[in-house]
């Protein structure tokens, strides 16, 4: 069996989802850490942002990040589409939450919401900054940009909804990625589930506090 065959079976596609998902989780940790610098002053944040925006290694990893992100999205949407065609006659009465929590059944929907949020998010910060770096007068002051954007209550609400979708996606995503790699043995499964939930809460609360902090003028 070739590598291509190994990765294209139903389990192989799960492994693709799992590995790209773990990479995106690692990215979130870095993103969260860098953004948290806003609470340590404008200079601390801008130094970190400058490093992330200009360092050769980081910029190279950025290409990989987009590749993995696109793979995760394409593979996820294709799995969602295929799986929904496995039962042509639907049940008249559905089990719903009696046999599984809603977020485990809604990964495709939550992922799509995150994707919509991501398009807005990238067009607000990453996009204009890279454009200015490449074609304009150099890096933008992202701190000032955040301060300005997060005065708009609509933007703040969109960001909070994005964080909400991300939290539920991660609650299942962290556990699910480990299950797919076969790490959720009897000894570790409870620990992995709890760490996943704790991680989801901590990361998304920190992310959600950023627009709130600017909107409420906790940081200036």
């Amino acid at each position: 069996m070739s590598w291509k065959q190994a990765f294209s079976s139903s389990v192989g596609k799960k492994i693709q989802m799992s590995l790209t998902g773990i990479f995106l989780i690692l990215f979130l940790i870095v993103h969260c850490y860098i953004n948290a610098q806003i609470w340590f002053g404008e200079d601390a944040f801008l130094t970190a942002a400058h490093f992330m925006g200009t360092n050769v290694v980081i910029r190279t990893i950025e290409i990989g990040l987009f590749a993995f992100l696109i793979l995760h999205i394409v593979q996820g949407l294709s799995l969602w589409a295929k799986n929904s065609k496995r039962r042509n006659t639907r049940y008249a009465v559905k089990a719903g939450s009696q046999t599984s929590p809603w977020y485990r059944r809604s990964m495709g929907l939550l992922g799509t919401l995150i994707l919509l949020f991501l398009i807005i998010h990238l067009s607000k910060f990453w996009g204009p900054n890279r454009f200015a770096q490449t074609f304009g007068s150099g890096e933008l002051n992202l701190y000032e940009l955040m301060k300005e954007e997060f005065q708009n209550v609509v933007i703040v609400v969109i960001y909070l909804l994005g964080c909400f979708a991300l939290a539920w996606h991660l609650v299942h995503g962290v556990y699910s990625s480990m299950q797919t790699l076969g790490l959720t043995t009897h000894r570790y499964k409870t620990m992995i589930k709890n760490v996943g939930v704790a991680f989801s809460i901590i990361v998304t609360v920190i992310f959600a506090l950023m627009p709130i902090s600017f909107y409420m003028h906790w940081v200036n």
Partner: peptide, 8 residues
């Protein structure tokens, strides 16, 4: 279908 670790 493929497994998405739902647990039902």
């Amino acid at each position: 279908g493929s497994c998405t670790n739902i647990g039902a």
